[in-house]
C-alpha cells in the first residue's frame, strides 16, 4: 500500500465518517440506545431474582448490540448505495482511486462511527452502573449479603469486543452490498445474515447431537465453521460483573477472530465489487 493509497483511503474514510455523523439516523439510534440503557434504572421493579447491576447492565449490553447492528447494517448499505445512486462513485472511481481503496475507505469510515457509538453508550452504561453501585454495596453490607462487583475496565474491554463484533457486521453488510442491486435487498439479506451468525452456535449444537444422522452432524459442523459466530463476543457479564472475569485466552481469541474476519470479508467484497458495473 503506497502513501498515496493510504491518503485516498483516509480521505474516503474521513468523508464517510463525517457524512454518517451528520445523518439524523445516527443521532436517533444513539438516543434510542441510550434511552434503553438508561431505562434499566427505571424498570428495576421488573427484575426477577437477578442482581440489580446485572439487570441494568443487560439493558446496556442489549442496546449496544441491537442498535449497533441496526446502525452497522443500515448505515453501511445506505452510504454504499448513495454513492452508486448519486453517481458519485462513478466520478470517484474515474479518478485514480482503486476499488479496494473505495471499499476500505467506506468500511473504515463506518467502523469509526460504530466506535464512537459504542464508546458513547459505554460511557452512559458506566455512569448508570456507577450511580447504583454505592447504594447496592451499602444495602448488601447492611443485610450481610455478598457485595456486588463492578469492573469498569472490564466494561471497556467489553466495548472493544462489541466494536469488533460490529466491525464484522459492517464488513458482512458491505460484502452483500458488493453484489446486491437494491438498498432493500441488501438491508434484508444483511439482517438475515446477522441473525444467522447470531444463532449459528445454537443451531450447530442442536444438529450435531449424537442421535442425529452422521451426514446431518457433518453438515452442521461444516456450516458452523463457515458462518461467523457472533456469540463469541458475548462476554459482558463475566467481564463486567464477575470477580472471576473471563479468561484472557477467550477475550484474545474473540478479538483475534473479529480482527481477522474483517479483512477476509473486505477482501471478498473487493473481489466481488471489482467486476461490478456502476
Amino acid at each position: 500500500m503506497t502513501d498515496s493509497s493510504l491518503l485516498r483511503v483516509r480521505w474516503i474514510a474521513g468523508n464517510t465518517f463525517v457524512e454518517a455523523l451528520r445523518q439524523r439516523f445516527f443521532a436517533f439510534l444513539f438516543l434510542l440506545a441510550a434511552g434503553l440503557a438508561a431505562s434499566g434504572m427505571l424498570l428495576r421493579t421488573f427484575n426477577f431474582g437477578q442482581s440489580e447491576l446485572k439487570f441494568i447492565a443487560d439493558f446496556g449490553f442489549g442496546a449496544m448490540f441491537l442498535f449497533g447492528s441496526i446502525l452497522a447494517i443500515v448505515m453501511t448499505v445506505q452510504l454504499f448505495f448513495s454513492e452508486l445512486d448519486n453517481r458519485t462513485a462513478l466520478t470517484l472511481l474515474a479518478k485514480p482511486v482503486r476499488r479496494w481503496e473505495f471499499v476500505l475507505g467506506k468500511f473504515l469510515g463506518i467502523w469509526t462511527l460504530l466506535g464512537v457509538f459504542i464508546a458513547l453508550l459505554g460511557v452512559v452504561l458506566a455512569v448508570m452502573l456507577s450511580i447504583r453501585m454505592p447504594e447496592l454495596v451499602e444495602s448488601a453490607s447492611r443485610n450481610g449479603e455478598p457485595l456486588p462487583f463492578l469492573n469498569l475496565k472490564g466494561l471497556g474491554m467489553f466495548c472493544l469486543l462489541q466494536w469488533f463484533r460490529l466491525g464484522v457486521v459492517a464488513a458482512l453488510s458491505l460484502m452483500i452490498c458488493s453484489f446486491a442491486q437494491t438498498f432493500l435487498y441488501a438491508v434484508i439479506v444483511s439482517a438475515m445474515g446477522i441473525l444467522l451468525c447470531q444463532v449459528q452456535s445454537a443451531g450447530v449444537s442442536a444438529f450435531s447431537k449424537p442421535d442425529q444422522e452422521t451426514w446431518v452432524r457433518t453438515l452442521a459442523n461444516g456450516v458452523g465453521k463457515v458462518i461467523p459466530d457472533l456469540q463469541l463476543f458475548d462476554l459482558g457479564v463475566p467481564l463486567v460483573l464477575s470477580p472471576a472475569g473471563a479468561p484472557q485466552s477467550a477475550v484474545l481469541s474473540a478479538l483475534g477472530y473479529g480482527a481477522l474476519y474483517m479483512p477476509v470479508l473486505l477482501f471478498i467484497t473487493v473481489f466481488l465489487f471489482s467486476d461490478r458495473e456502476i
Binding site: S201, V226, P228, D229, D234, V251, S253, G256, I268
Partner: peptide, 27 residues
C-alpha cells in the same frame, strides 16, 4: 466469481474457527 467468493468464505471460515475456538469453548 461468486463460486470463488463462496469457496474463499468457506476456507477462511474454517481457518478462523480455529482462532475463535478458545472463546467458543469457554462460552
Amino acid at each position: 466469481r461468486r463460486i470463488i467468493a463462496v469457496v474463499m468464505l468457506c476456507v477462511a471460515g474454517c481457518a478462523l474457527s480455529l482462532v475463535g475456538q478458545p472463546a467458543a469453548d469457554w462460552q
